[in-house]
């Protein structure tokens, strides 16, 4: 049963991921991304990480991809893009190198920690079985005690992004007249 769920979810993730990079239409690519995110949410549920699954759907599928679609629709780039001309010539070879590098690092990490991966984890599992809210309690306790510094730094990072957006989209006095006229 567990294997079956894993295979289905993994297939969803892979099909979606391949769709993201092969689809010419940006809206279709974004929808493939949703499929991938859902597959990951299913994998979370299969590992009893219910809260993570819910957050995955609410934040990634529900907010971030919706924003992607928004930008695509508002900018009107929803026609198939011309992929033959490349604005940045070094981009593709560089992407290839980085991609192979990341894959290599992940494989190396898996091979290195082979022994640890074969042992079945128990932490979240046993707690979730006793009490439905234990999962979220554990998570919040570690976020707001052990990792509170990292958590706050991340929120400051988001704040910087917001301030940056406002500064960049702001016009100087008198500058707009020519633009908007």
């Amino acid at each position: 049963m567990e294997l079956f769920v894993f295979v289905c979810a993994a297939a969803m993730v892979l099909v979606g991921a391949i769709g993201v990079i092969t689809r010419n239409n940006p809206v279709h690519a974004a929808l493939s991304l949703v499929l991938t995110l859902f597959g990951i949410a299913v994998l979370f549920v299969a590992n009893n990480a219910h809260f993570l699954a819910a957050v995955q759907v609410i934040v990634y599928a529900g907010a971030i991809v919706v924003l992607f679609l928004f930008v695509i629709m508002l900018l009107g780039v929803d026609q198939a893009e011309d992929l033959s001309t490349e604005p940045l010539t070094a981009q593709r070879p560089l992407a290839l190198v980085v991609g192979i590098g990341v894959a290599g690092v992940i494989i190396a990490a898996i091979v290195k920690s082979q022994d640890a991966l074969l042992v079945r984890g128990t932490g979240i599992n046993s707690a979730t079985l006793e009490d439905a809210d234990a999962n979220i309690r554990q998570l919040s306790r570690s976020i707001f005690s052990d990792y509170v510094f990292a958590f706050e730094v991340t929120s400051v990072l988001l704040l910087i992004a917001v301030v940056g957006t406002v500064v960049m989209s702001r016009r100087q006095h008198g500058q707009h007249v020519e633009e908007s006229a």
Binding site: V27, H50, F51, A53, A54, V55, V57, G62, V66
Partner: peptide, 25 residues
């Protein structure tokens, strides 16, 4: 009665946006 309970409703309501958005597009 999923363990995430009410979060399920929030997740579903954020998915519901897709139907309307994609229909228009």
């Amino acid at each position: 009665d999923p363990p995430i309970g009410i979060l399920f409703a929030l997740a579903i309501s954020s998915i519901a946006i897709y139907g309307i958005m994609l229909a228009g597009w």
